Amino acid sequence: MSDEDFLARQFEDHRTHLRAVALRMLGSGADADDALQETWLRLSRSDTSEVANLAGWLTTVVSRVCLDVLRARRSRSEVSLDDPDRLEPALPRPTAEPEHEAVLADSVGVAMLVVLDTLAPAERLAFVLHDMFGVPFDEIAPIVDRAPAATRQ
């Protein structure tokens, strides 16, 4: 098996996790897929022979790609309200059925995206990686170029 085939297999093994990080960071399926594509390109161009934790390396790369996208959005004042991947809030039904729970979860997801949109890109990255994926602040700090104590803030 060639090195590129090995890397492709490793990337595919981690694709679900990487897409989840990108989707939560960017709030758009299309943007998340673009971030994954950029992550693959960076992986395929990099010498990973010294990488001890490929999953961590890939998470760092996709996080930095998302951070760049968020910073670009902010500098261009982009708002992706017309994005078809963005969920519309649904009105919850007054029952305790599973479908009611799913509708409620969808509306909470949209509210979470609205809150995330108010955060600065580095804050958003720290929140998503720590609170949603359990990445320690000590590992997030180098990604956002801040001290661990500042990252916690």
Rank of each mutant, 00 (worst) to 15 (best):
G109K: 04
L113C: 11
F11T: 06
Q10D: 05
P94A: 15
D145W: 11
A35L: 05
E139D: 00
L43K: 07
D138S: 03
G56C: 14
D3A: 05
L26W: 09
P136M: 01
A149H: 00
Q37Y: 09
S44E: 13
L116T: 08
A120R: 08
F11E: 09
V65R: 06
V144R: 07
S107W: 12
F133Q: 00
L36H: 02
L23G: 06
L91Q: 14
L125E: 02
G27C: 11
D34Y: 09
E123I: 06
P89N: 10
V108A: 14
E123V: 04
D85S: 15
P121S: 03
G109M: 07
R74D: 11
P136R: 00
S77T: 11
D31E: 12
Q153P: 01
S49N: 12
L18D: 02
A72Y: 11
E97H: 13
E88A: 15
A149S: 08
R24D: 10
T118W: 13
L58V: 06
D145Y: 01
D68I: 06
G109R: 08
V114C: 07
G27A: 05
A102M: 12
F11V: 09
A122T: 04
L113I: 03
G29N: 14
D31W: 03
T118G: 10
S49I: 12
D3F: 12
D3G: 15
T48C: 08
G56T: 02
P142S: 01
E99C: 10
L18G: 05
H14G: 07
V114E: 06
A52P: 08
M132P: 00
D31N: 15
F6D: 10
D13Y: 01
V65Q: 06
A126F: 04
V108I: 14
E99T: 07
R93Y: 15
A55I: 08
R19K: 14
R24N: 11
A122M: 01
S63E: 14
E123C: 02
S49P: 05
L36D: 09
L116I: 04
S46C: 07
R73P: 09
H130I: 02
D106I: 10
A111M: 04
P148S: 02
A30R: 07
I140H: 07
D145A: 10
R146P: 04
H130D: 00
C66N: 04
I143Y: 03
S46Y: 07
D13S: 11
W40D: 09
D131N: 00
E88T: 13
G29T: 12
S46D: 10
T16A: 11
P148T: 01
W57F: 05
